[in-house]
């Protein structure tokens, strides 16, 4: 149709000469805009590829003294750090594989979970605060599991899910008064923010982002692929 119409416009132009060459100007401007946009996208992709090859990162930023360890390997040969958001679908998709891996390797690997709530997810911060409040009563892992196991119940809802999380705290037998104070407290909020700030400093841009022995893991977060990396690190 457009090509056809251009012929029409050109054919008709001599009949009425009052206008400047219309269709060709229009086409040029439109294609020009599209070309600029395309260049922008390509540029962005190239910049991203380059920043993708990050070497070993600073270990003190990667795992803090107060970072939550789901398991600790005495030999310290393999340390996996996962920056996650409880409301991120990719994290939820990775979760079963991670749990299988943790069950299989247990204390042969150190597994560290760090908060990286994504602001566009309505309850990402609430969920992280719930996990951190539970952590203050020694129940981080239980809340971590509870949040992921029930992610389809509370995830992607606009309304705050604070009451739902409190229900989980009750089910887990936490001291509710203390939980309520913690979850709304400035300390817990600051702790979650500090994790996210560490992540940002390490170049984390999305979730889940894994680091294996200080090197960002850029493969797929599937059980098989993660296991391959763990095996390699254990045998080296």
């Amino acid at each position: 149709m457009p090509a056809d119409d251009r012929h029409g416009a050109q054919a008709r132009r001599p009949a009425r000469d009052t206008r400047k060459p219309g269709m060709s100007t229009n086409l040029k401007v439109t294609l020009g805009i599209l070309a600029v946009a395309l260049l922008g996208v390509i540029g962005l992709a190239v910049v991203n590829r380059d920043s993708g090859t990050t070497p070993v990162v600073a270990s003190d930023t990667l795992v803090r003294a107060d970072s939550h360890r789901l398991s600790t390997a005495p030999d310290g040969r393999v340390t996996i750090v996962e920056f996650l958001d409880f409301e991120c679908e990719s994290c939820l998709a990775a979760y079963p594989g991670v749990e299988k891996l943790r069950a299989e390797y247990g204390d042969r690997i150190t597994y560290v979970v760090r908060y990286f709530p994504i602001p566009s997810h309505p309850n990402a911060f609430n969920a992280a605060h719930a996990a951190e409040a539970a952590a203050r009563q020694g129940k981080f892992e239980a809340m971590y599991k509870k949040l992921f196991d029930n992610a389809t119940v509370w995830g992607h809802k606009e309304e705050p899910q604070v009451a739902v999380f409190e229900g989980y705290a009750r089910e887990m037998g936490l001291d509710l008064a203390r939980y309520r104070a913690d979850v709304a407290g400035a300390e817990v909020a600051a702790r979650v923010k500090a994790d996210a700030a560490d992540g940002a400093a390490l170049g984390v841009q999305g979730t889940p982002t894994f680091f294996v022995n200080g090197v960002r893991y850029d493969g797929l977060p599937t059980y098989d692929d993660l296991k391959a990396v763990v095996e390699k690190s254990l045998s080296s």
Binding site: D5, A9, A11, R12, A15, R16, D17
Partner: peptide
Amino acid sequence: MSVALTEETPADADAGAVLSDRLVGW
């Protein structure tokens, strides 16, 4: 070209317009 000219010109009130009726119609 000339075929298009003879076909389009008589009936099209807006012949020569950038924003032709045909374009907007489509």
